[in-house]
Structure formats: structure tokens, C-alpha cells
Design a protein around this nucleic acid. Structure first.
Lengths: 151, 151
DNA sequence: TCCGTTTGTTAGGATACACTAACAAAATAA
DNA sequence: TTATTTTGTTAGTGTATCCTAACAAACGGA
């Protein structure tokens, strides 16, 4: 259900109206699945939807959608920019993982991503070291040199 | 189903025999759920189990169990030792996430954890900086000092 | 050995999704 | 305005899990 909310929110960007067919395509499910999801979400007061009409999120629904989106983006950034997973797979995995992360963990992950990518400024050296390590299974020359020097 | 395999594998550690009740308790589900899971896993040749008897993993089942366990441990380490999530929650979140991570992403995560915690040796300084940042919402004094100096 | 407890199974049902087929409403084009 | 196409709904199914209640097998002590 979270995916439906997230998708509706995305499709509504810029004040556009949202219809069943769009949601169906966005999520890769058939239209009857959308209809029944909407029925359920209406009952929970997360969307407004009348037969054959447009779909709109309630405030509560919008809040949840934004939360899911935030989880998604945090994971996507972590996977893509820190682990170096390719963009397509980063999105796919983020989609699956976004429903499994607890709020507290997510908050820490968000801070982590922010810390690594922006503090004190820009991507740190060690992350480049990690990329090298991942590609070559060993540390880059300067690390090794430093290690030897330290001995 | 993966959870069943993982659990059976854990319970069998050290050559111990495994029974339905144990699995039931380990996973927090009722015994009929275990019985039917075993029926299914038997059909897929992942476990051996005859009525009222012990439960054993096949080689194939053991392989999958170990893979799940590896995913679990990788995630747990990441959450606990890098993000600093408390141990109990690290386990819980790892349990939920372990079924959502693709193999490629998992491999990168494993390398990342190894890199951060062991290369070139021990926990790096910046990770302590992160912990401080998370607690105080700001960088520790030495970072700030370094920043100013660099200016 | 036989009776109660523990352990495991069967039967039947609930929920959360998804799907197809068939139909109904709305929109569009002739 | 009527015919056609597009869009959305309903009805009925299927699969994956879980559950409870009731029963059956196995185990262990008196």
C-alpha cells in the first residue's frame, strides 16, 4: 500500500490530476489491483477517490507518501553514491528495502549519508579508497605506502 | 521460506537434531505454520522431513541457509557497527532487510563493512566523527579546527 | 503396560496481494 | 448523436502466509 501512496504522490507532482491507469503503469500492476488498493486506502482515509474519478491523497496520505519517498531517496543515495551500486539497481533495491527499514535506522542512515558526502566538505578520500578496494580487492598504492611508512 | 531455512540451520549448529517446536519458537510462529512450511520446502528438496521426525537441511537447503545468514550478518554489522543502531534493533532490521537486498548490492555492502572496519586497520577516525555528529548534530571540535586551519 | 503430557498434523479459515474475464461508464471521433 | 475506443469496476481466482481447533502419534513415568 505504501507503494501506491508514493506513486500517487509522484504522479501528482505539479498539481497534475492522477488516474487509475497511470498508477497501474507506474507500479506495473493491472488496473483492478489499483482499484482495490484505492478502495482500501479510501477506507483508511489516505486517499480520496470516487468511482471513475481522479485520485487525490489526503493530508495524512501525503504525509506517509513523503515519508516513504524520503526512505527511498536515502537508500538510493546510500546504495548509489556510497556503495557505488549502479543507478538502476540502486533504485530497484531501494524500492524493496524501503519497506523494511525502521524509522530509527533510517534516520541514522540519512545522517550517515549526509555526513559521508558533505562533512566537512565533499566526498572524502577514503571513499575513493573503497572504490579502488572494491575494484581491485586491495588498497590503492598510497594507502599501502602509508601503511608501510607507519610500521 | 528463507527464514525457515536460516532458522533450521542455526538450530542444527553442532550436529544437534531439529524439531518442529524449536523452529516454531525460534521464528515466533505456530506449529502448523512450521509443518506446512516444511511440506513446501520438502517438495523443493531443500529439507528432509518425515512425519513426526527430525528436520534436516539438504545440501542445497544448507547452501541457501548460509547465504541468508551471510546477508543477515552483513546487514547486522553494518547497522550495528557502522550506523551505531542498537544491537536488538540491528538484528530486527537485518531480519527484515535480508530478503530485500540483491546479491550484487549485498556483496558491495559486505566489502564496505570490511573496508571501513578493517582497512588499513581498525575503526577509522571519521567513524568516531560520525558518531559525534549523530549525537550532537555537529562536528567534533578537532574537525572544526581542521576546517578552520584549512581555510 | 497404559495413561497423561508433549509434540506434530490435519482441516478449515483469514488476510494481503496479485491476476483474468467480462462488463459499465466516460470520452472521443465520425 | 451514435459508434468506437479508452478507462475503470466487478466478480471470481490463485498464491503465500498466517491462524485456531481438533485430533493423532510418540514419549515417559507410575
Amino acid at each position: 500500500m505504501e507503494d501506491y501512496l508514493e506513486s500517487i504522490s509522484m504522479l501528482a507532482q505539479g498539481g497534475k490530476v492522477v488516474r487509475v491507469t497511470q498508477i497501474s503503469k507506474a507500479l506495473g500492476v493491472r488496473k483492478p489491483s489499483v482499484t482495490s488498493a484505492l478502495k482500501k486506502l479510501s477506507k483508511e482515509e489516505l486517499v480520496e477517490h470516487e468511482r471513475y474519478g481522479y485520485v487525490k491523497l489526503t493530508d495524512e496520505g501525503q504525509k506517509i507518501a513523503e515519508d516513504v519517498f524520503h526512505r527511498h531517496e536515502t537508500l538510493r543515495h546510500f546504495l548509489g553514491e556510497i556503495l557505488g551500486v549502479n543507478p538502476k539497481m540502486a533504485v530497484e533495491d531501494a524500492c524493496k528495502m524501503e519497506h523494511a527499514v525502521s524509522p530509527i535506522t533510517l534516520e541514522r542512515l540519512a545522517k550517515f549519508v549526509e555526513f559521508v558526502l558533505n562533512r566537512p566538505r565533499g566526498k572524502p578520500e577514503w571513499l575513493k579508497g573503497f572504490n579502488y578496494y572494491f575494484e581491485h580487492g586491495d588498497l590503492p598504492p598510497e594507502y599501502t605506502a602509508k601503511c608501510l611508512r607507519d610500521k
